[in-house]
Design a protein around this nucleic acid. Structure first.
Length: 393
RNA sequence: GGAGGGGUGGGUGAGUGGUUAAAGCCACCAGACUGUAAAUCUGGCGCCCUGACGGGCUUCGCAGGUUCGAAUCCUGCCCCCUCCA
């Protein structure tokens, strides 16, 4: 194990797209990168050997969930999260701020922090910006996140502003707490920009957060209900205001089309449960779009789902077999699907890195978006957006 | 031979005079899922017309009957199950 400090190196740019690498005490990772999500210290259904072999260099875990179970002290006593879960590469932990959004009725927010009622046993827990940082110190990830308040991005402007301002105050506390600890050199701390879909707020937030010398900057509060167009616009706006010499992390994104579009705007890091969650429910990514493997039409397809895919599932099994596993409720189905989807995403990231390095990212993006068909829902939204734009113009 | 119970939509199984094209579950057919309270959730599922609202037609073993109206009541028939001989 090295004693390497955190660092980010921008290698090349191609338009707004960036090719770089992050350096951490647990190794180097190439950007743009995608972090598979291991919320409860596991990428659901997979071993970390598998995760690594799929091309993942960094994974994300969640301080809130680990705090509840098995407990920060337990992880710490076990030698830190790397040892506990058996992943020797870089790890990023989310602070638990997102859970304030996703846990709906189980939490109460005030200016000092967030009161959570455990979804496991109903017990109450108070998270503050200080405690969120200290918890993440105990867990020991290479990159830790500020405690922020995520809200429905296109929600009430008043609520969005309030959450943003709270996030700003908390960001200062997080930074101070971290800077004063002995962890500052070993763990990187990222700040998080909020502000919903309101351009003024996003600009204000970008300004505020980048005034604090974080190791990297994240865009939070997106992909939580707003339209794709809004998400894209906000990402671009924020990226324009972020310093070039720090990594940029778009939290919780995303789908193949979102990844390609966001890299085009200058994002370096992503994480998303989508590939694995959707996989467990039978949705698989292919170069021509997302499909539901349980559909009748795959029953007799005795060929791999994606001939161009080098994943274990596509090299060894047919689409008809995958469908069978899902129809039969066999756990190998979700496992193979997770392997496939993660490989698809990680290969996409790798392809994007190559394209940027070769200075042909724009055409790569055009080609990809031309052949990749997102979900019906996403297409409907895109069509509506185009229609509104044409009318407005 | 005697006594009792039962036959409902692809399966299971409610319903015992109208609000029932008929609950629920399963199967089947689709859709969704973006810092994981998710191997979850939603919709459809007799036939025909409709984008939808809605409308029409045919259904509860078979055949008759009672009734304004029946899966539900009556009669006959067919079949199945349990117990006794």
């Amino acid at each position: 194990m090295t004693t390497q400090r955190f660092g980010f190196q921008l290698l090349t740019t191609d338009g707004a797209a960036r090719r770089g690498q992050i350096t951490t005490p647990h190794g180097v990772a190439q950007t743009p990168l995608f972090m598979p999500v291991a919320t409860q210290a596991t990428v659901k259904g997979l071993t970390f050997d598998e995760v690594r072999s799929l091309g993942a260099e960094t994974v994300l875990s969640n301080a809130y969930h680990l705090y509840l179970r098995p407990g920060v002290e337990r992880v710490s006593d076990a030698g830190g999260l790397h040892r506990f879960m058996g992943w020797s590469g870089p790890i990023l932990t989310d602070s638990g701020g997102y859970q304030a959004f996703s846990m709906g009725t189980l939490r109460r927010v005030n200016d000092d922090g967030i009161v959570f009622r455990s979804h496991i046993d109903g017990s109450e827990h108070f998270f503050t910006p200080q405690s969120a940082i200290i918890n993440q110190h105990g867990i020991g990830a290479d990159i830790i996140m500020c405690f922020d308040q995520c809200v429905f991005s296109a929600g009430e402007p008043g609520a969005v502003k309030e959450a943003m301002e709270r996030t700003h105050r908390w960001a200062r506390v997080c930074h101070e707490t971290h800077a004063q600890s002995d962890r500052a050199g070993r763990q990187a701390l990222f700040g998080i920009v909020q502000g919903g879909t309101v351009p003024d707020l996003r600009q204000e937030s970008t300004q505020y957060i980048t005034d604090i010398p974080f190791d990297g900057y994240a865009i939070g509060g997106l992909a939580v209900g707003e339209t794709k167009a809004e998400m894209h616009d906000v990402t671009g706006l924020v990226c324009d205001g972020l310093p070039a010499d720090r990594p940029r992390y778009l939290m919780g994104v995303g789908s193949p089309e979102d990844l390609v579009n966001s890299v085009a705007l200058g994002v370096d890091m992503f994480d998303c449960v989508l590939p694995t969650r959707v996989a467990r429910n039978g949705a698989l990514f292919t170069p021509t779009g997302r499909i539901n493997i349980a559909n009748r039409k795959y029953a007799e397809q005795d060929v791999p789902l994606d001939e161009t895919c080098d994943c274990y599932a596509c090299r060894n099994y047919t689409a008809a077999y995958l469908r069978h596993l899902f129809k039969a409720g066999e756990m190998l189905g979700p496992r193979l699907a997770s392997i496939h989807n993660l490989r698809f995403i990680l290969r996409l990231m790798s392809d994007m890195r190559d394209a940027i390095a070769a200075g042909r990212f724009a055409s790569f993006r055009t080609d990809f978006l031309h052949t990749y068909r997102p979900t019906d829902e996403a297409r409907r939204q895109a069509q509506k957006h185009r229609w509104i734009e044409e009318r407005g113009a």
